[in-house]
Structures are given as C-alpha cells and as structure tokens.
Computed example of a mutant assay.
Amino acid sequence: MARSVLGPEIERLIQLLAKLPGLGPRSARRAALALIKKKDQLLVPLAGAMSLAAERVKVCSVCGNIDTVDPCAICSDPERDARTLIVVEDVSDLWALERAGAMKARYHVLGGTLSPLDGVGPDDLTIDALVRRCASGEVSEVILAVNATVDGQATAHVITDRLTATPVKVSRLAHGVPVGGELDYLDEGTLAAALRARTPF
C-alpha cells in the first residue's frame, strides 16, 4: 500500500469534501488543491462562512426550511398566501420553486420520501406535522410537489390518504412535456403523463 504524501490536515479536508454530493475522491482532491492554492481568496473566507453557518443556520419549526431565523422568512412573510401549502421532499426543492417565482405560497418540507428499502416510514417524515397544519383550518389547498419517482408517488398517496379527514383540497404538479422540450427526446412515461394531463388549447 502506497504511503500518502499528503499531511493529515490535507487528507482530512479531502475526505470531508468527498462526502459532499457530486464530489468523489478525485473531484475532492482537485477542490482541496484549488482551496489551498487560493488560501486567502477561498479557503479562509470559506472556513469563516462555514463556521458562521454552523453557528447561525437553523431549521424552521413551522415548515422545515433552513434559515437564520425561526420561523423562517417565508413563514413570516405576510405577503405569502397562507391558505396554500406546497409540499416538497427537501429544502433543495423549495429553493428550486422559489427560483421559478411562480407562486407566493407557503411550504412544508417532508425531509425525504417513503422508502421501505431504506427503512424510511411515515414516522421518519414530517407527515404528522403537515396533517396538523391542515387540520388547523388555515390551509385550504395542499399542492404536492414531490418527484415523479416510485417513492415520491407512494409518499403522495400516503399524504393524500392522511389528509382526507381535513377540509383541504389536494392537488399535485402536472407531469409532462417540459417547456422547450422535444417529443423525440422524452421517455414513454413522460409522454403518457403529458397525454393524461392534457389541457384545453
């Protein structure tokens, strides 16, 4: 076994970077080298930003978003439609919808999807908290913005079943042809969903 020529601090940096999504050992080595080469411009400010984030970032007790305040800025925004809740799997999905800027609603982050193979059941997600929010009478519509995967659809069905006892209307994102998409490049499942969800023209 080859002996490492790197110091333990550098090895540790590489190991931690390699745990990030999208970074394997090779990409982590390149990222670590770039940080070290630009220590003053990148490494030191990044370390400071990460330390500050670790100290100040918290999970919103209402919706599950992450922010530096609790409740988060979205839950506290009086301009938001409190009657509409968009249910997402993860904070990254919330951020994606916010970038689109299509709706000024509020959110509920599930913290994942049901996955029996991975041992993730309803109690591991924030489904109970969602039901409580809907039972309060303030929410009139829940939009299920979960991924069109097997686990995502199973999660959507469980949520729909759990919300039948509440007065809310449940809808979901339309699935089908993306804006700018060409039919020839789409899979059969997407085309079938687009045909089922067709709208008047």
Rank of each mutant, 00 (worst) to 15 (best):
P78R: 02
R80M: 03
D81S: 03
D81N: 12
D81Q: 02
A82W: 00
R83E: 14
T84S: 05
T84N: 02
L85C: 04
I86P: 00
I86E: 06
I86M: 14
V87H: 12
V87F: 05
V87G: 08
V88P: 01
E89T: 10
E89H: 04
E89K: 08
D90L: 10
D90F: 03
V91A: 09
V91F: 13
S92A: 13
S92N: 14
W95M: 15
W95D: 12
E98P: 01
A100M: 11
A100I: 04
A100C: 04
G101V: 02
A102M: 10
A102N: 13
A102S: 10
A102T: 10
M103I: 11
M103F: 13
Y107A: 05
H108D: 05
V109S: 07
L110A: 08
L110G: 08
L110V: 05
L110S: 10
L110Q: 13
G111K: 11
G111I: 04
G111V: 04
G112K: 12
G112H: 09
T113S: 15
T113F: 03
L114F: 09
L114W: 07
S115V: 02
S115Q: 04
P116A: 12
P116Q: 13
D118C: 02
G121H: 08
P122R: 12
P122C: 09
D123S: 14
D123H: 14
D124M: 06
L125V: 03
L125H: 07
T126A: 15
I127G: 08
D128L: 02
D128F: 00
L130A: 10
L130Y: 07
L130E: 08
V131E: 12
V131T: 07
R132D: 15
R132E: 14
R133I: 01
R133Y: 03
C134F: 06
C134Y: 05
C134I: 03
A135I: 02
E138Y: 00
E138D: 10
E138H: 07
E138P: 00
V139W: 06
V139L: 08
S140G: 04
E141A: 11
V142N: 11
L144S: 08
L144W: 12
